[in-house]
Design a binder for these strands. Structure first.
Lengths: 210, 210
DNA sequence: CCTCGCTACCGACTGGTTGTCGGTTATGAT
DNA sequence: ATCATAACCGACAACCAGTCGGTAGCGAGG
């Protein structure tokens, strides 16, 4: 009757289910009952592994960020690919996930999920920033771009991509095009690049998805 | 015993108290009981005037945004003041409020208040944007700055100010200076202004407050 | 001055929530 | 075989948002 698993395995099981439910229905409107009923465990078990519902959310985001960072680091290291392209690929990897955090991105921006969105955003801004800043510095060294404040440009860009482009699916085709063109235009200005030199690398971002 | 007030008056009373409590403890951890006990009304009364707790939040933000927009419009209209300065004054008015929404800004950025923060941010981005975009266009007409996408520059700027600078109080002095310098630097690049030409107008933002 | 209707108000109640706790069972080491 | 311990259980307490049938004050019209 009673199924016992090693703690790590059960934790992951909980995070899998919780992550999917949060993604489907939002964090607020997913009850702990929803989670434990779907897994088939008792309340006590859930709270044996996690100290609160928010703790589950945090652990889920931790796991997700870990996976993201591994991907991002792998991409960033491919020195044979041009900097611009690598940068784009990393941002792309953030949005169109293939892993367990996949549908999460779709739901994140409903008002229900404000907490989750904010937590993820903070983590992106702090943990992904150094990696991207490194890329920019590489670009500066190569004479591709120039700025005195690479980290802050990254901050601004991440923020923008993560809030404005998230809602992009909702918008009219015409407005989407404008936003994308504006983004490239502004990024080129922030990085003092040749007008048009970023387009090629960024455009694949908006090819089929979004 | 039973105190009866005109509906509008009671609504405002509720919004006053709710606003203060949301600001002090955050939206999530303020219960409807907290509100109605402090006012001294019954549950039914609260739900006679508002259809849900979130409805109270929305009404509060409505009222706040209304006041903000009035202020901002007044500032934006002062054609005798240089555009840069007006722009700065408006942003300043957003952060250091004198009205009832005063302490709200202080608490907004705790994770508890993610929902409130997001709602306010959306409203800022949609409702304040046209006003600021108008200012930028005025600056363009005057030859002070130049961009093909004034609205998107405003969007980027508002977003940045509203998330990065909110946490600024928490940071080390050294980092604050850097963030501010970077902000000016980036804004000048986005608007193609003479380096240093924005400093004078922006600096008052960070004089004593924040 | 009376009464009638409507607006504002009341508070008990419901259904659902998160988190706790004392007790129980499986597992693996001895 | 026994025993400590890690994993699990489920009843329970405390709380919370929202509902509803009923009530009191107020203003208008007789």
């Amino acid at each position: 009757m009673r199924i016992v698993k090693e703690a790590g395995e059960r934790k992951n099981e909980i995070l899998d289910v919780a992550g999917r439910l949060f993604a489907q229905k939002g964090y607020d409107s997913t009850s702990t009952n929803d989670i434990l009923e779907e897994i088939g465990i008792a309340r006590g078990t859930l709270y044996y592994h996690f100290k609160s519902k928010e703790d589950i959310l945090d652990a889920m985001i931790d796991r997700m960020m870990g996976q993201m960072l591994v991907q991002a680091k792998a991409l960033a290291g491919q020195k044979e690919i041009p900097v611009q392209r690598r940068l784009t690929m990393i941002i792309q990897a953030l949005q169109i996930r293939g892993g367990p955090g996949d549908e999460i991105m779709e739901q994140i921006h409903k008002p229900q999920n404000a907490l989750m969105h904010q937590k993820i955003q903070n983590r992106l801004l702090t943990e992904l920033n150094p990696l991207l800043t490194g890329l920019i510095e590489e670009g500066i060294a190569q004479g591709i771009c120039q700025t005195d404040y690479p980290s802050e440009v990254v901050e601004m860009t991440l923020l923008y991509v993560n809030t404005v482009f998230d809602n992009l699916a909702v918008r009219r085709e015409e407005e989407r095009r404008r936003k994308i063109a504006a983004f490239i235009y502004n990024l080129e200005r922030l990085l003092q690049m040749e007008p048009g030199s970023m387009s090629e690398a960024v455009m694949p971002l908006f090819g089929e998805k979004i």
